[in-house]
Nucleic acid binder design. Structure first.
Lengths: 234, 234
DNA sequence: CAATACTGTGTACAGTAGACGCAGTTTCAG
DNA sequence: CTGAAACTGCGTCTACTGTACACAGTATTG
């Protein structure tokens, strides 16, 4: 059945290593993950190397391999640690809790932008991250949705938050090179406005309105549509 | 104004290099991008190296640097080439064209899974990719949405497609290691079902229903909610 | 006490991106 | 027609990456 979980699964889901015989370990998975998170927060995921992480802890890079099979597993641990415990959701019913969940998740991505890079592709989900999933699925307990639909709702919400966080990462602190990229894009569109009339018009109009509402906009539309579905079942 | 576009912008948006003096170039940006795409399609973005791309073309890696400032710019070119020309959208009004657009975009991600990895983080958008945006924004021309809202719609849809493609990449061809990962996750949840009751119940129920409907599910809910908004304006 | 298992570390290797300079080739200015 | 200039692809070099492996030291067990 589950007699041969991957090494990464062992690290994430236990069991905790039994008492050892040799010299006691100077480091812990938690310390290593924390060091990796600190590094990724400041340098980005691309700037994360075994050497740097080990240096931050005052050890050599090879010592890390006593705790972690490889870099991929380290990143997996970092993800589960950085995402943090799933929050208590405010509000009653399903709508407000889900909206709250989405905003809290967006805040996590804001604190650790590298999570966007670290959570692409097939990967293993840790217990903490699964706690987030549980919180969202549980918010749908009183609805008439099927099991697959509840999972779909969470997948769609998480995907939406991810996508918006990703695009708002480009519009970082003022004066950043990202800002300049956006400026470049804007001027590019303005230059080629003949080829992209609808986009150019929309951007010109958007420049005079409030922006960065994509998260709330998508949230409202999706939850409205979900409400229609749920009411139709009720 | 736009007198100093980044080198990547020059490559993507022209101007085309003026006639040269030295020996004529043996390669072209198109060939290089195509070789990179071929490699990324088979080996993934992680397996993409200047060495491999050059080898595929029968040249040395350093010759590539005559055409492309660096690997990042190569990937940017590959993205714009791989995404392909924006399709004609079927249907009338705004709903069917947008749904069609989303499905076509999902198909692109299916053909080039590495696009998911290549389009994270702040980056420059090329003319072809902008053509996709234009097509979607244009589909909203007859609605009473504001400019910012139209851009939000496109951002939300693209994000949704991205996110679903990402998660369905894990459920690849049967027998793949990804499938095993999912199996591991399923058994993990089953093992810890006490800690994640709602998720475990939803997954157990989903196992007996049709799956992989997340794309259509999210699409329907979002477009339903968008319809409510548009009708309220009309 | 000896065997054992575990620790952190040093060395080694294959691979990466990219800087720089060089020889050959093509075009332009005189 | 001749030199200068500009461009080509290439070989070499540096710095860095992840990780396999062997080794000496240490703590626990029999």
């Amino acid at each position: 059945m589950d007699e041969d979980p991957s090494p990464a699964a062992r690290l994430l889901w236990g069991p905790p290593p039994r008492p050892t015989r040799g010299p006691k370990a100077a480091l812990s998975l938690g310390q290593i993950a924390a060091a990796g998170i600190e590094l990724a927060d400041t340098e980005g995921l691309a700037g994360l190397s075994m050497q740097q992480v080990a240096g931050l802890l005052g050890y050599t890079k090879m010592s890390l391999y006593r705790y972690v099979p490889g870099k991929a597993e380290l990143v997996t641990l970092m993800v589960d640690a950085a995402i943090g415990q799933a929050p208590e959701l405010s509000g009653t019913g399903w709508r407000e809790p889900l909206a709250d969940w989405s905003r809290q998740l967006a805040a996590v991505f804001g604190r650790h932008p590298w999570l966007l890079d670290a959570t692409v592709g097939p990967r293993l989900i840790g217990p903490t991250e699964l706690g987030w999933m549980e919180a969202a699925v549980a918010a749908l307990a009183d609805t008439a949705l099927t099991g697959a639909e509840r999972l779909d709702v969470v997948a769609v919400l998480a995907g939406h938050v991810r996508a918006i966080a990703q695009q708002s990462r480009a519009a970082g602190p003022e004066g950043s090179p990202e800002q300049q990229l956006l400026a470049t894009l804007g001027s590019l569109i303005a230059t080629h406005r003949d080829a992209y009339p609808a986009t150019a018009a929309a951007m010109a109009a958007a420049a005079q309105e409030g922006q960065d509402q994509a998260l709330e906009f998508g949230l409202r539309c999706f939850l409205d549509g979900l409400g229609v579905l749920i009411d139709g079942r009720g």
